[in-house]
Design a protein around this nucleic acid. Structure first.
Length: 346
DNA sequence: TCTGGGGTCCTAGGACCC
DNA sequence: TCTGGGGTCCTAGGACCC
Protein backbone atom coordinates (compact mmCIF):
# COMPACT_ATOMS: atom_id res chain seq x y z
CA UNK A 1 0.00 0.00 0.00
CA UNK A 2 1.36 3.39 -0.97
CA UNK A 3 1.54 6.47 1.16
CA UNK A 4 -0.56 9.51 0.35
CA UNK A 5 -1.48 12.81 1.92
CA UNK A 6 -4.24 12.67 4.53
CA UNK A 7 -5.99 15.26 6.60
CA UNK A 8 -7.00 14.43 10.14
CA UNK A 9 -9.06 16.42 12.58
CA UNK A 10 -8.37 15.97 16.28
CA UNK A 11 -11.25 17.07 18.51
CA UNK A 12 -10.94 16.81 22.30
CA UNK A 13 -13.89 15.26 24.13
CA UNK A 14 -15.85 17.69 26.35
CA UNK A 15 -12.60 19.60 26.56
CA UNK A 16 -13.33 22.21 29.22
CA UNK A 17 -15.15 19.77 31.47
CA UNK A 18 -12.40 17.19 30.94
CA UNK A 19 -9.71 19.65 32.06
CA UNK A 20 -11.69 20.35 35.21
CA UNK A 21 -12.05 16.62 35.88
CA UNK A 22 -8.28 16.18 35.62
CA UNK A 23 -7.76 18.33 38.68
CA UNK A 24 -10.94 17.17 40.44
CA UNK A 25 -10.91 13.43 39.81
CA UNK A 26 -13.45 12.93 42.58
CA UNK A 27 -16.05 14.49 40.24
CA UNK A 28 -15.54 11.84 37.57
CA UNK A 29 -18.85 10.17 36.71
CA UNK A 30 -20.88 13.11 38.03
CA UNK A 31 -22.60 15.71 35.86
CA UNK A 32 -20.31 18.73 35.63
CA UNK A 33 -21.28 22.09 34.18
CA UNK A 34 -18.70 24.81 33.52
CA UNK A 35 -19.71 28.36 32.80
CA UNK A 36 -19.68 31.95 34.02
CA UNK A 37 -18.81 32.37 37.66
CA UNK A 38 -20.08 28.88 38.43
CA UNK A 39 -23.07 30.15 40.37
CA UNK A 40 -26.26 28.62 38.97
CA UNK A 41 -28.45 31.07 40.88
CA UNK A 42 -27.07 34.05 38.99
CA UNK A 43 -28.94 35.33 35.96
CA UNK A 44 -27.34 36.16 32.61
CA UNK A 45 -24.77 33.40 32.68
CA UNK A 46 -24.73 30.39 30.40
CA UNK A 47 -23.17 26.94 30.14
CA UNK A 48 -19.80 26.91 28.40
CA UNK A 49 -19.36 23.12 28.48
CA UNK A 50 -21.39 20.31 30.01
CA UNK A 51 -19.87 16.92 30.76
CA UNK A 52 -21.43 13.93 29.02
CA UNK A 53 -23.23 13.03 32.25
CA UNK A 54 -24.79 16.51 32.34
CA UNK A 55 -25.66 16.34 28.63
CA UNK A 56 -27.59 13.17 29.36
CA UNK A 57 -29.89 15.37 31.47
CA UNK A 58 -30.44 17.75 28.56
CA UNK A 59 -27.84 20.30 29.58
CA UNK A 60 -25.95 21.85 26.67
CA UNK A 61 -23.70 24.80 25.98
CA UNK A 62 -25.42 28.13 25.61
CA UNK A 63 -28.16 27.17 28.03
CA UNK A 64 -28.67 29.56 30.99
CA UNK A 65 -27.02 28.19 34.13
CA UNK A 66 -30.33 28.44 35.99
CA UNK A 67 -32.02 26.31 33.37
CA UNK A 68 -29.19 23.78 33.65
CA UNK A 69 -29.65 23.67 37.43
CA UNK A 70 -33.34 22.95 36.98
CA UNK A 71 -32.70 20.18 34.51
CA UNK A 72 -29.90 18.67 36.48
CA UNK A 73 -30.07 19.60 40.18
CA UNK A 74 -27.26 17.19 41.06
CA UNK A 75 -24.79 18.85 38.70
CA UNK A 76 -21.56 20.34 40.00
CA UNK A 77 -21.20 23.92 38.74
CA UNK A 78 -17.71 25.27 38.18
CA UNK A 79 -16.49 28.69 37.08
CA UNK A 80 -14.76 29.05 33.74
CA UNK A 81 -10.95 29.15 34.04
CA UNK A 82 -9.54 30.05 30.61
CA UNK A 83 -5.84 30.02 31.61
CA UNK A 84 -6.17 26.38 32.70
CA UNK A 85 -7.72 25.46 29.35
CA UNK A 86 -5.04 27.30 27.44
CA UNK A 87 -2.35 25.42 29.34
CA UNK A 88 -4.01 22.06 28.71
CA UNK A 89 -4.48 22.95 25.05
CA UNK A 90 -0.77 23.71 24.70
CA UNK A 91 0.07 20.26 26.11
CA UNK A 92 -2.26 18.61 23.61
CA UNK A 93 -0.72 20.48 20.68
CA UNK A 94 2.76 19.58 21.88
CA UNK A 95 1.76 15.92 21.93
CA UNK A 96 0.56 16.15 18.33
CA UNK A 97 3.74 17.91 17.25
CA UNK A 98 5.70 14.96 18.56
CA UNK A 99 4.71 13.16 15.35
CA UNK A 100 6.23 13.74 11.91
CA UNK A 101 3.11 15.60 10.77
CA UNK A 102 1.93 19.14 10.11
CA UNK A 103 -0.26 20.56 12.88
CA UNK A 104 -2.68 23.47 12.56
CA UNK A 105 -4.08 24.62 15.89
CA UNK A 106 -7.77 25.37 15.50
CA UNK A 107 -9.01 26.79 18.75
CA UNK A 108 -8.42 25.42 22.24
CA UNK A 109 -9.67 21.95 21.62
CA UNK A 110 -9.17 21.18 17.95
CA UNK A 111 -6.33 20.68 15.52
CA UNK A 112 -5.94 19.71 11.90
CA UNK A 113 -3.12 17.29 11.18
CA UNK A 114 -1.69 16.79 7.71
CA UNK A 115 0.34 13.68 7.18
CA UNK A 116 1.89 11.59 4.44
CA UNK A 117 1.16 8.04 5.61
CA UNK A 118 0.07 4.65 4.45
CA UNK A 119 -2.44 3.95 7.19
CA UNK A 120 -4.23 7.07 8.52
CA UNK A 121 -6.43 5.05 10.88
CA UNK A 122 -3.30 3.73 12.60
CA UNK A 123 -1.93 7.26 12.81
CA UNK A 124 -5.22 8.44 14.32
CA UNK A 125 -5.05 5.77 16.99
CA UNK A 126 -1.42 6.67 17.73
CA UNK A 127 -2.35 10.35 18.08
CA UNK A 128 -5.10 9.45 20.54
CA UNK A 129 -2.73 7.31 22.60
CA UNK A 130 -0.08 10.01 22.71
CA UNK A 131 -2.54 12.74 23.66
CA UNK A 132 -3.98 10.61 26.44
CA UNK A 133 -0.56 9.53 27.71
CA UNK A 134 0.78 13.07 27.81
CA UNK A 135 -2.33 14.94 28.98
CA UNK A 136 -4.90 12.51 30.38
CA UNK A 137 -7.42 13.83 27.84
CA UNK A 138 -9.32 11.83 25.25
CA UNK A 139 -10.21 12.91 21.75
CA UNK A 140 -12.02 11.84 18.63
CA UNK A 141 -10.12 11.82 15.35
CA UNK A 142 -11.67 12.31 11.93
CA UNK A 143 -9.77 11.01 8.92
CA UNK A 144 -10.55 12.81 5.69
CA UNK A 145 -9.10 14.01 2.45
CA UNK A 146 -9.66 17.66 3.29
CA UNK A 147 -10.50 19.80 6.32
CA UNK A 148 -14.24 19.59 5.80
CA UNK A 149 -14.45 15.81 5.52
CA UNK A 150 -12.00 15.36 8.39
CA UNK A 151 -13.94 17.74 10.60
CA UNK A 152 -17.27 16.05 9.93
CA UNK A 153 -15.68 12.64 10.34
CA UNK A 154 -14.55 13.54 13.85
CA UNK A 155 -18.18 14.07 14.87
CA UNK A 156 -18.90 10.45 13.98
CA UNK A 157 -15.91 9.41 16.06
CA UNK A 158 -17.12 11.14 19.22
CA UNK A 159 -16.37 10.42 21.91
CA UNK A 160 -12.97 8.85 21.81
CA UNK A 161 -13.21 7.09 18.45
CA UNK A 162 -11.89 7.35 14.92
CA UNK A 163 -13.96 7.69 11.76
CA UNK A 164 -12.91 7.92 8.13
CA UNK A 165 -14.88 10.05 5.68
CA UNK A 166 -13.46 10.50 2.21
CA UNK A 167 -14.58 10.66 -1.41
CA UNK A 168 -15.18 6.90 -1.31
CA UNK A 169 -17.92 6.94 1.34
CA UNK A 170 -18.98 10.61 1.33
CA UNK A 171 -22.36 10.21 -0.36
CA UNK A 172 -23.16 6.95 1.42
CA UNK A 173 -22.57 8.57 4.80
CA UNK A 174 -23.70 12.15 4.19
CA UNK A 175 -26.05 12.13 1.20
CA UNK A 176 -29.28 11.62 3.13
CA UNK A 177 -28.32 13.93 6.00
CA UNK A 178 -29.58 17.51 6.35
CA UNK A 179 -27.51 20.13 4.56
CA UNK A 180 -27.09 21.87 7.93
CA UNK A 181 -24.68 19.11 8.93
CA UNK A 182 -22.15 20.55 6.51
CA UNK A 183 -19.41 22.53 8.19
CA UNK A 184 -20.20 26.19 7.50
CA UNK A 185 -23.89 25.72 6.76
CA UNK A 186 -25.81 27.17 9.67
CA UNK A 187 -29.51 27.63 10.36
CA UNK A 188 -29.95 30.66 8.09
CA UNK A 189 -28.32 29.07 5.09
CA UNK A 190 -30.18 25.82 5.70
CA UNK A 191 -33.45 27.75 5.67
CA UNK A 192 -32.60 29.44 2.38
CA UNK A 193 -31.65 26.08 0.89
CA UNK A 194 -34.92 24.58 2.10
CA UNK A 195 -36.75 27.44 0.37
CA UNK A 196 -35.11 26.25 -2.85
CA UNK A 197 -36.28 22.70 -2.14
CA UNK A 198 -32.79 21.58 -1.10
CA UNK A 199 -32.93 19.66 2.15
CA UNK A 200 -30.20 17.06 2.12
CA UNK A 201 -26.54 17.02 1.24
CA UNK A 202 -27.42 14.98 -1.86
CA UNK A 203 -30.04 17.55 -2.88
CA UNK A 204 -27.44 20.28 -2.69
CA UNK A 205 -24.77 18.25 -4.45
CA UNK A 206 -27.09 17.69 -7.41
CA UNK A 207 -28.66 21.15 -7.37
CA UNK A 208 -29.19 23.29 -10.44
CA UNK A 209 -26.51 26.00 -10.20
CA UNK A 210 -28.72 28.86 -11.40
CA UNK A 211 -31.03 29.27 -8.39
CA UNK A 212 -28.07 28.83 -6.04
CA UNK A 213 -26.22 31.57 -7.87
CA UNK A 214 -29.21 33.89 -7.73
CA UNK A 215 -29.79 33.27 -4.04
CA UNK A 216 -26.25 33.18 -2.68
CA UNK A 217 -23.89 34.88 -5.13
CA UNK A 218 -21.10 33.26 -7.10
CA UNK A 219 -18.67 32.67 -4.28
CA UNK A 220 -21.06 31.14 -1.76
CA UNK A 221 -22.92 29.14 -4.44
CA UNK A 222 -19.67 27.60 -5.64
CA UNK A 223 -18.60 26.80 -2.11
CA UNK A 224 -21.96 25.21 -1.25
CA UNK A 225 -21.81 22.89 -4.26
CA UNK A 226 -18.22 21.93 -3.55
CA UNK A 227 -18.75 21.23 0.13
CA UNK A 228 -21.89 19.18 -0.55
CA UNK A 229 -19.80 17.02 -2.86
CA UNK A 230 -17.22 16.34 -0.17
CA UNK A 231 -14.76 18.99 -1.30
CA UNK A 232 -12.78 21.29 0.94
CA UNK A 233 -9.59 23.08 1.82
CA UNK A 234 -6.48 20.93 2.15
CA UNK A 235 -3.95 23.48 3.35
CA UNK A 236 -2.51 22.91 6.82
CA UNK A 237 -1.07 26.15 8.20
CA UNK A 238 1.51 25.40 10.87
CA UNK A 239 2.49 29.01 11.59
CA UNK A 240 0.86 30.40 14.75
CA UNK A 241 -2.34 32.30 14.07
CA UNK A 242 -2.05 36.07 14.17
CA UNK A 243 -5.27 37.54 15.55
CA UNK A 244 -7.05 40.10 13.35
CA UNK A 245 -9.00 41.54 16.24
CA UNK A 246 -9.52 41.36 19.98
CA UNK A 247 -12.66 42.22 21.87
CA UNK A 248 -14.01 42.43 25.36
CA UNK A 249 -17.67 42.52 26.25
CA UNK A 250 -19.76 42.32 29.38
CA UNK A 251 -23.38 41.52 30.02
CA UNK A 252 -24.31 43.39 33.17
CA UNK A 253 -26.31 41.67 35.89
CA UNK A 254 -28.72 44.60 35.69
CA UNK A 255 -29.38 46.85 32.72
CA UNK A 256 -27.58 50.17 32.57
CA UNK A 257 -29.60 53.31 31.89
CA UNK A 258 -27.39 56.22 32.92
CA UNK A 259 -25.41 57.49 29.89
CA UNK A 260 -22.58 58.61 32.15
CA UNK A 261 -22.29 55.15 33.61
CA UNK A 262 -22.44 53.60 30.14
CA UNK A 263 -19.62 55.84 28.95
CA UNK A 264 -17.63 54.97 32.06
CA UNK A 265 -18.01 51.25 31.39
CA UNK A 266 -17.01 51.65 27.74
CA UNK A 267 -13.92 53.52 28.87
CA UNK A 268 -13.03 50.71 31.28
CA UNK A 269 -13.50 48.04 28.60
CA UNK A 270 -11.44 50.04 26.09
CA UNK A 271 -8.54 50.52 28.51
CA UNK A 272 -8.49 46.88 29.65
CA UNK A 273 -8.63 45.64 26.08
CA UNK A 274 -6.06 48.18 24.95
CA UNK A 275 -3.67 47.09 27.69
CA UNK A 276 -4.05 43.48 26.56
CA UNK A 277 -3.38 44.09 22.88
CA UNK A 278 -0.54 46.50 23.48
CA UNK A 279 0.89 43.95 25.90
CA UNK A 280 0.87 41.47 23.03
CA UNK A 281 2.89 43.91 20.98
CA UNK A 282 0.08 44.80 18.62
CA UNK A 283 -1.09 48.13 17.21
CA UNK A 284 -4.75 49.10 16.96
CA UNK A 285 -6.18 50.30 13.64
CA UNK A 286 -9.94 50.44 14.31
CA UNK A 287 -12.13 50.66 17.39
CA UNK A 288 -15.67 49.31 17.47
CA UNK A 289 -18.36 49.51 20.14
CA UNK A 290 -21.24 47.09 20.53
CA UNK A 291 -24.38 47.86 22.48
CA UNK A 292 -27.02 45.28 23.27
CA UNK A 293 -30.25 46.85 24.38
CA UNK A 294 -32.72 45.12 26.66
CA UNK A 295 -34.71 44.15 23.53
CA UNK A 296 -31.60 42.23 22.38
CA UNK A 297 -31.21 44.56 19.42
CA UNK A 298 -27.42 44.71 19.06
CA UNK A 299 -26.01 47.31 16.69
CA UNK A 300 -22.26 48.00 16.41
CA UNK A 301 -20.47 51.15 15.33
CA UNK A 302 -16.82 51.55 14.50
CA UNK A 303 -14.19 53.94 13.25
CA UNK A 304 -10.78 53.77 11.72
CA UNK A 305 -8.21 55.67 13.75
CA UNK A 306 -7.50 58.82 11.76
CA UNK A 307 -3.90 59.15 12.85
CA UNK A 308 -2.97 55.59 12.00
CA UNK A 309 -2.25 52.50 14.11
CA UNK A 310 -1.62 53.19 17.78
CA UNK A 311 -0.47 51.71 21.06
CA UNK A 312 -1.73 54.71 23.03
CA UNK A 313 -4.40 53.69 25.54
CA UNK A 314 -5.72 57.25 25.71
CA UNK A 315 -6.27 57.26 21.95
CA UNK A 316 -8.04 53.90 22.12
CA UNK A 317 -10.27 55.00 24.99
CA UNK A 318 -11.14 58.32 23.31
CA UNK A 319 -11.96 56.54 20.07
CA UNK A 320 -14.29 54.16 21.89
CA UNK A 321 -16.09 57.10 23.51
CA UNK A 322 -16.34 58.88 20.16
CA UNK A 323 -17.85 55.78 18.58
CA UNK A 324 -20.25 55.44 21.50
CA UNK A 325 -21.67 58.86 20.58
CA UNK A 326 -23.07 57.32 17.40
CA UNK A 327 -25.66 55.49 19.51
CA UNK A 328 -28.89 56.85 20.91
CA UNK A 329 -28.73 55.60 24.47
CA UNK A 330 -32.36 56.15 25.32
CA UNK A 331 -33.16 52.55 26.24
CA UNK A 332 -31.81 50.16 28.87
CA UNK A 333 -28.52 48.52 27.92
CA UNK A 334 -27.70 44.94 28.95
CA UNK A 335 -24.32 44.51 27.23
CA UNK A 336 -21.43 46.71 26.21
CA UNK A 337 -18.49 45.58 24.11
CA UNK A 338 -15.35 47.06 22.62
CA UNK A 339 -13.42 45.52 19.75
CA UNK A 340 -10.06 46.55 18.39
CA UNK A 341 -8.93 45.62 14.91
CA UNK A 342 -5.20 45.01 14.80
CA UNK A 343 -2.50 45.88 12.34
CA UNK A 344 -1.05 42.90 10.45
CA UNK A 345 2.47 42.44 9.11
CA UNK A 346 4.49 43.87 11.91
C1' DT B 1 -37.24 31.80 35.45
C1' DC B 2 -35.26 34.01 28.69
C1' DT B 3 -31.00 34.53 25.62
C1' DG B 4 -22.29 34.57 27.36
C1' DG B 5 -17.96 35.69 25.32
C1' DG B 6 -14.51 35.65 21.68
C1' DG B 7 -13.53 35.25 17.15
C1' DT B 8 -13.45 35.21 11.33
C1' DC B 9 -14.99 36.27 6.80
C1' DC B 10 -18.15 38.09 3.34
C1' DT B 11 -21.33 41.48 1.26
C1' DA B 12 -23.45 45.74 0.24
C1' DG B 13 -24.11 50.62 0.00
C1' DG B 14 -22.45 55.28 0.15
C1' DA B 15 -18.60 58.49 -0.19
C1' DC B 16 -15.20 60.10 -2.89
C1' DC B 17 -12.06 60.48 -6.70
C1' DC B 18 -10.74 60.33 -11.52
C1' DT C 1 -27.06 70.74 -19.03
C1' DC C 2 -29.83 64.85 -17.89
C1' DT C 3 -26.12 62.22 -17.44
C1' DG C 4 -21.16 58.44 -17.70
C1' DG C 5 -18.57 54.76 -15.59
C1' DG C 6 -14.85 52.59 -12.68
C1' DG C 7 -12.19 51.91 -8.54
C1' DT C 8 -11.27 52.15 -3.66
C1' DC C 9 -12.16 53.24 1.07
C1' DC C 10 -15.15 53.03 4.91
C1' DT C 11 -18.87 51.37 7.75
C1' DA C 12 -22.72 48.25 9.09
C1' DG C 13 -24.63 43.99 9.21
C1' DG C 14 -25.06 39.01 8.45
C1' DA C 15 -23.61 34.41 9.12
C1' DC C 16 -20.99 31.04 11.14
C1' DC C 17 -17.89 28.78 14.43
C1' DC C 18 -15.95 27.31 19.11
Amino acid sequence: MATRWWLLHVDLDQFVAAVELLRRPELRGRPVVVGGSGDPTRARQVVATASYEARAHGVHSGMPLRAAARRCPDAVFLPSDPPAYEAASARVMAALRGFPVRVEVFGWDEAFVGAEVEDPMALAADLQKAVFAQTGLTCAVGVGDNKSTAKIAARFGKPGGVFQLTAGNWMDVMGARPAAELWGVGPKTAKKLADLGLHTVADLAAADPEPLLARFGARMAGWLRATARGGGDTEVVTEPWVARSRSRETTYPRDLTDPEQIAGQVAVLARELGADVVGEGRRVTHVAVKVRFASFYTPTREMKLRDGPTTDLDVIERAALTVLEKFRLDRPVRLLGVRTDLELDR
